[in-house]
Design a binder for these strands. Structure first.
Length: 319
DNA sequence: GGCATTTGACCCAA
DNA sequence: TTGGGTCAAATGCC
């Protein structure tokens, strides 16, 4: 049976679709061999070996499918997996922007408050979701009428961990949020306050005020301010800036130079236009757990066993 | 008064 | 028929 780490690797590159196909093809070949073997009346030992190998192939293939399904989270509609609950009937709406889906799981410090991601949202509905203890809130961009912005988001508490919010962003912001942008996060404010204090005290031992990464050019989602990412150790790390910057020209894996020696899990699956993902983390953040929708599973970036070297420069990822 | 939120009703895909 | 998504009237807040 595959371990979780192995299953995670399956989703990435060579462990993904190709290997799934390989396993199925291999299983088929073995079944054909067994069929021929049965007709040839070979030894029971050989037949037993073949059946075990066939079962192993399908078990491995199924585990791949199962893990894809589990990571798809709220938006598993595009993944045809038998393990998906039967009550998930309706297809994802917003046909024009259906592929522009970003799903994240973040921890919220304030109950029932939608996360401040730098955009202004207006709540237009709330529904009790079957199988979940918490209702799902539906938000649309406040500039929907004024500027025709079709961006929406859904916020729901995780049923497994109520301290976590599952946020699904749909569509792209086409509006100009002049009143709220740029927004200074608590983290940014903190830096500013410290700098101000330093100025007032006349003590600026480390030179000029540190530049705060400006993510205001990002469209959606542009997570900032008080986003909290919770790791597997139940420790909440602050995430001052997590942005998915539209950049259709290249796919940049910002974590490829990070050393992996911990037991953390990271996954990011983003639509095509989010392929470049500069991610800003605090130096003391040792995990960001991002789970996103399956709209473009092939673009999944899966990294298991991640942690950050103390010497690692996060400024590399600033927007 | 204007704007945001709440909430029951309605629509629609499966 | 059911459940998720949206609408829109009612309500609350500033």
């Amino acid at each position: 049976m595959e371990t979780k780490q192995q299953s995670l690797k399956m989703m990435n590159g060579g462990w993904g679709r190709n290997n799934l196909m390989n396993e199925l093809v291999r299983g088929k070949g073995l079944a054909q061999q067994l069929k021929a073997d049965l007709f040839a009346a070979s030894s029971a030992e050989m037949q037993c070996l073949l059946t075990e190998r066939i079962l192993g192939c399908y078990e491995k293939a199924l585990s791949m499918l199962e893990y894809r399904g589990s990571f798809a989270g709220l938006s598993v509609d595009t993944v045809n997996v038998s393990s998906i609950p039967t009550y998930r009937k309706r297809k994802t709406p917003s046909p024009r922007l259906a592929d522009e889906v970003v799903q994240v799981v973040v921890a919220g410090s304030e109950l029932d408050s939608p996360l401040d991601d730098g955009h202004s949202w207006r709540k237009y509905g709330q529904k009790d979701i079957l199988g979940s203890n918490f209702p799902r809130g539906y938000y649309r961009c406040s500039n929907r009428h004024a500027q025709g912005c079709l961006a929406t988001k859904q916020v729901q508490r995780s049923k497994t961990d109520p301290t976590l919010f599952e946020v699904v962003y749909r569509g792209r912001h086409t509006c100009i949020q002049s009143s709220r942008s740029p927004v200074r996060s608590p983290w940014q404010k903190k830096i500013g306050a410290v700098s101000k204090d330093a100025e007032e005290n006349g003590s600026t031992p480390h030179g000029p005020t540190p530049e705060v990464p400006d993510c205001s050019m990002s469209t959606v989602p542009n997570f900032r301010s008080d986003l909290m990412i919770k790791n597997v150790d139940n420790k909440i790390d602050s995430l001052p800036c997590l942005s998915f910057t539209p950049s259709p020209m290249e796919f940049t894996n910002p974590f490829e130079d990070i050393s992996f020696f911990d037991s953390k899990v990271m996954e990011a699956s983003v639509p095509d236009y989010y392929l470049s993902m500069p991610v800003c983390l605090t130096p003391d953040s040792n995990l960001m757990e991002v789970v996103s929708g399956p709209a473009s599973v092939t673009n999944s970036l899966t990294i298991d066993k991640i942690s950050f070297d103390p010497e690692f420069s996060f400024e590399t990822f600033y927007c």
